[in-house]
Computed example of a mutant assay.
Amino acid sequence: MVDPGWSRIGPDPAIRAWADSARAAALRALAATDEAWRCGGTWFVGVDALPNSPDGAIHGTPFPWDALPLRPEPLHRAQLSVIRPGYPRPSPDETPAAFAFRRDRDAAHLDGLLPIGPDKRRMVKEPHAWILGLPLNRATASPLTVWEGSHEILRAALLKALAPHPPESWGEIDVTDAYQQARREAFATCRRLELAASPGEATLIHRLTLHGVAAWKSGDTAPPEGRMIAYLRPQLACVRDWLAAP
């Protein structure tokens, strides 16, 4: 079987216990934050917003390592991604083209590539080991989306772009053109999936999988606080490890 680049785990009581504890912490964080909501007030980015400890525990509830196909390792504070009705709406910090891409293509992206300099050229600055999404409340709205098998397309394209350069310099190399071409290939050849999940489940994404967030559709539902997901992305030591198989 071809690796699709994602998997769903659970439901599991240990994952659910962590999600319940994290939801309580998330509601407190949202009430106390002064962070501006993006996309016309419909998206709270919430980087490092949750108060988990390096072992993943949150307010005494242990991180559910035993329920996950992952080895325990030190974790950063989790991102809290919250989506409200109407996502996405136009905002001054996005060009019309960027907004259209967010609306029509889920703002599909590869984590770890950051826009550098005035021209926002993409470089691998945050080589993650994996991406784990943990839903904190029950919602049908704006699920995570993935393009199945896209991780192999992106791996091949980035390796080709970086091969002429010494591996120790790979984090300083402009890979914008290779990335954009590989993303177009993924749109044309890979199946797009919407991965709705509930508290007690987890979605594990390969670090090189193209992914995004679906627009809020008519009939979508979520609690009053909006659709909430916690994300964890521990970093690897180098770009070469990031591009290594599997």
Results as ranks from 00 to 15, higher is better:
residue 150 S to V: 10
residue 141 A to E: 08
residue 157 A to L: 06
residue 90 P to N: 06
residue 138 R to A: 11
residue 141 A to H: 03
residue 67 A to T: 09
residue 129 A to M: 06
residue 68 L to G: 14
residue 53 S to Q: 12
residue 113 L to C: 01
residue 114 L to E: 15
residue 30 L to N: 13
residue 136 L to C: 06
residue 31 A to W: 00
residue 73 E to D: 01
residue 135 P to E: 07
residue 91 S to N: 12
residue 13 P to V: 03
residue 112 G to H: 02
residue 139 A to V: 02
residue 123 M to V: 07
residue 21 S to C: 03
residue 105 R to S: 08
residue 75 L to G: 14
residue 149 G to N: 06
residue 89 R to H: 06
residue 18 W to R: 10
residue 61 T to K: 07
residue 23 R to L: 12
residue 60 G to W: 14
residue 127 P to F: 02
residue 13 P to N: 08
residue 110 L to N: 10
residue 18 W to Y: 04
residue 96 P to H: 08
residue 82 V to Q: 08
residue 21 S to M: 03
residue 123 M to S: 04
residue 38 R to E: 05
residue 26 A to P: 13
residue 127 P to D: 11
residue 16 R to Q: 13
residue 123 M to Y: 04
residue 15 I to P: 07
residue 143 P to R: 06
residue 125 K to L: 12
residue 109 H to S: 06
residue 87 Y to F: 13
residue 17 A to S: 14
residue 146 V to S: 01
residue 116 I to M: 10
residue 21 S to H: 05
residue 15 I to R: 09
residue 31 A to G: 15
residue 66 D to N: 09
residue 138 R to T: 11
residue 28 R to Q: 15
residue 68 L to S: 15
residue 65 W to I: 09
residue 23 R to C: 10
residue 36 A to F: 00
residue 33 T to Q: 07
residue 143 P to Q: 09
residue 116 I to K: 04
residue 102 R to S: 13
residue 84 R to V: 11
residue 17 A to C: 01
residue 117 G to Q: 13
residue 110 L to S: 04
residue 17 A to G: 11
residue 18 W to G: 11
residue 157 A to D: 12
residue 15 I to Y: 02
residue 54 P to N: 05
residue 34 D to V: 08
residue 37 W to C: 02
residue 81 S to I: 08
residue 80 L to D: 02
residue 97 A to I: 12
residue 30 L to M: 09
residue 53 S to C: 03
residue 142 S to D: 09
residue 18 W to I: 05
residue 67 A to E: 01
residue 154 L to R: 04
residue 68 L to P: 15
residue 104 D to R: 08
residue 87 Y to M: 04
residue 116 I to V: 12
residue 107 A to D: 11
residue 41 G to A: 03
residue 82 V to S: 10
residue 88 P to Y: 01
residue 82 V to Y: 04
residue 24 A to R: 15
residue 157 A to R: 11
residue 40 G to L: 03
residue 122 R to M: 14
residue 118 P to E: 11
residue 124 V to G: 05
residue 18 W to M: 05
residue 30 L to S: 13
residue 26 A to W: 13
residue 18 W to H: 12
